[in-house]
């Protein structure tokens, strides 16, 4: 089930969109980088960790700020075009 639970500002949306894009980029780069290229590989691993942390802390701080409705098995999703936040829960 998908339920509209809030909205963020365009600036806030831009922050998470950049992190989202970066995470996707890192994940796809991980498919082609090998440990042979050790410097770049280490840079990638570090960046994946840092980006993941920033990603999670955005959701933490926004959910705290806006007090979005949550659910035990649910997760939030953002629509990058509208800045809307949805709560996604499994169909019961």
């Amino acid at each position: 089930m998908k339920k509209l639970v809030g909205q963020v500002t365009p600036e806030e949306k831009n922050e998470i969109q950049t992190l989202f894009e970066r995470r996707n980029g890192l994940n796809e780069l991980a498919k082609i980088l090998t440990v042979d290229n050790s410097d770049l590989y280490e840079k990638l691993v570090r960046d994946l960790g840092e980006t993941g942390t920033k990603f999670q802390s955005w959701w933490d701080s926004m959910s705290k700020k806006y007090r979005w409705e949550s659910a035990a098995n649910g997760n939030w999703e953002i629509n990058f075009e509208t800045c809307e936040i949805f709560l996604i829960t499994p169909e019961s």
């Binding site: 950049t18 894009e21 970066r22 980029g25 890192l26 082609i32 770049l40 840079k43 960046d47």
Partner: peptide, 19 residues
């Protein structure tokens, strides 16, 4: 595409976040 991804990342190019 492999080269672009690798170069964008290693150069810290802004386009790595948006391509």
């Amino acid at each position: 595409c492999d080269y672009i991804k690798t170069e964008l990342f290693s150069r810290n190019h802004r386009w790595f976040n948006s391509y």
